[in-house]
Amino acid sequence: MRVLQIVNLGFEAGGAEKSVRLIAEGLTARGHQVRVVATDLLAEGQQVFADELVPAVSGGPARRLLGYFWHRPAYRAVRRQLLEFRPDCVHLHTIGEFSPAVLAATSGVPRLLTVHGPEDWTKALLRWNLASASAGGRLSAADSCRYLYLRLLQRPAYLLRLRRVRRVLAPSRYFAEAVRPDVGRVPVHVLPNGIPRTAGAEPVTDAQQLLFVGRLEPVKGVHVLLAAFRELIARHPEARLAVVGDGPERARLEAAAADLVADGRVVFHGWLTGDQVAERLRAASVVVLPSLWPENFPTVALEALQIGRPMVASRVGGLPELVGPDNGALVEAGDVAALAGALGGLIGDLERLALLGKGSAARADRYGVEEFLDNLEHHYTEIVRP
């Protein structure tokens, strides 16, 4: 089968891109022909896995506003890919950087779409596309205007064509239910992501090491984690925190934690390779996911399950489908005291950490990459069937 994959970014900026890369490599290994198309947004200097890059929306505010409503260069580039590659089906992933034009460009070919996070067409999640949403409370004046634009203009432009795809896939039950009202009669299926089994579960050997892995942006809640960590070390002075990832908030977060960094309690590792992330996971006692926005099905959580690490996570999005009393704890998003308390209940207690680590390992077998690819092939076969 010839499968065209379409995603905003052509390098591994996060879980969505990692999933697309795994799909492309896995399907190719199974004998399928796969082509990945992405925009060139932020691609300079990155390890690009996409086969083709199309121009991203650019220019001043007015031009960008029009570009996100209808990005003609993306339409032309995607149409050209369809004519050259002649796919049997198109798998759409994150598509906001292509604008609704990508849906028009791929019409006439069987399509499915995987929802990886809040998009410009997801009504229930729309506010999470706005910077001030992570602060809680009311949106800023600028974001309120942008929200109206998204709600009244951008979203309808997507829905007009989105409701013509053959099915929608969501990694979590939470996101499946969130998007059902948006897609009308299009069938929505839950298909949890899978990852390769690169390592077996390992026992926790250090009871004092916390770990965050993810993009450093406000919605990820790292500032909440740092505040909670300050409360934690008052009772557990031996505790340490490793922060893995990069992003627009890194400089601000490092400045806010300068004293903790100087003391060696907090280390910002920046972006790491997959092998290096696995090494940090093995060294961790607890993996922390303090997200403020509704996470879908984060890859780092699946990796933590595989290595057998307890998790403390916000009770948002799909995280409660991955974390429970058997393998960690859930807290209200943004609640510094609750996060500090949950971490304090685990840190330093090797016996409890071992028990919860076994709980994570027991969940890991549900999310193997081969089972994921089996299910994905089934969906492809279903949508191309006459």
Results as ranks from 00 to 15, higher is better:
residue 3 V to D: 01
residue 4 L to C: 10
residue 6 I to W: 00
residue 7 V to A: 00
residue 10 G to T: 08
residue 10 G to C: 08
residue 11 F to V: 07
residue 15 G to T: 08
residue 19 S to A: 15
residue 20 V to W: 02
residue 24 A to L: 08
residue 26 G to M: 07
residue 27 L to K: 09
residue 29 A to N: 01
residue 33 Q to N: 08
residue 34 V to G: 03
residue 36 V to H: 03
residue 37 V to N: 02
residue 38 A to Q: 03
residue 43 A to W: 11
residue 43 A to L: 03
residue 53 L to E: 05
residue 54 V to K: 01
residue 60 G to F: 07
residue 61 P to N: 04
residue 61 P to L: 14
residue 71 H to E: 11
residue 73 P to T: 12
residue 74 A to M: 10
residue 74 A to F: 08
residue 75 Y to F: 14
residue 84 E to Y: 02
residue 85 F to H: 03
residue 94 T to E: 13
residue 95 I to V: 15
residue 99 S to H: 11
residue 101 A to L: 09
residue 102 V to C: 09
residue 104 A to D: 14
residue 110 P to S: 12
residue 114 T to Q: 13
residue 118 P to Q: 05
residue 121 W to G: 04
residue 125 L to T: 01
residue 137 G to P: 11
residue 139 L to M: 10
residue 145 C to H: 00
residue 146 R to I: 12
residue 146 R to S: 08
residue 146 R to E: 14
residue 149 Y to R: 01
residue 151 R to I: 03
residue 154 Q to A: 13
residue 158 Y to I: 07
residue 161 R to D: 06
residue 164 R to S: 12
residue 166 R to W: 02
residue 168 V to L: 10
residue 169 L to F: 06
residue 173 R to I: 08
residue 179 V to H: 00
residue 182 D to E: 05
residue 182 D to G: 05
residue 183 V to E: 00
residue 191 L to Y: 04
residue 198 T to N: 01
residue 203 P to Q: 11
residue 204 V to R: 01
residue 205 T to P: 00
residue 205 T to V: 13
residue 212 F to S: 04
residue 217 E to F: 07
residue 219 V to Q: 13
residue 222 V to D: 02
residue 227 A to F: 04
residue 229 F to T: 04
residue 231 E to G: 14
residue 239 A to Q: 10
residue 239 A to K: 10
residue 239 A to C: 12
residue 256 A to D: 13
residue 259 D to N: 10
residue 265 R to Y: 01
residue 278 A to V: 11
residue 280 R to L: 04
residue 282 R to D: 00
residue 284 A to R: 05
residue 285 S to F: 02
residue 285 S to H: 06
residue 286 V to H: 00
residue 286 V to Q: 01
residue 286 V to N: 01
residue 287 V to P: 00
residue 288 V to L: 00
residue 296 N to I: 06
residue 296 N to W: 03
residue 300 V to G: 02
residue 300 V to K: 00
residue 314 S to W: 01
residue 315 R to G: 02
residue 318 G to L: 07
residue 323 V to F: 02
residue 325 P to F: 03
residue 330 L to T: 06
residue 336 V to W: 03
residue 337 A to Q: 12
residue 341 G to T: 13
residue 344 G to W: 05
residue 351 E to T: 15
residue 352 R to N: 12
residue 357 G to F: 09
residue 360 S to T: 12
residue 364 A to D: 03
residue 370 E to L: 11
residue 372 F to R: 07
residue 374 D to S: 03
residue 381 T to L: 11
residue 383 I to E: 09
residue 386 P to G: 15
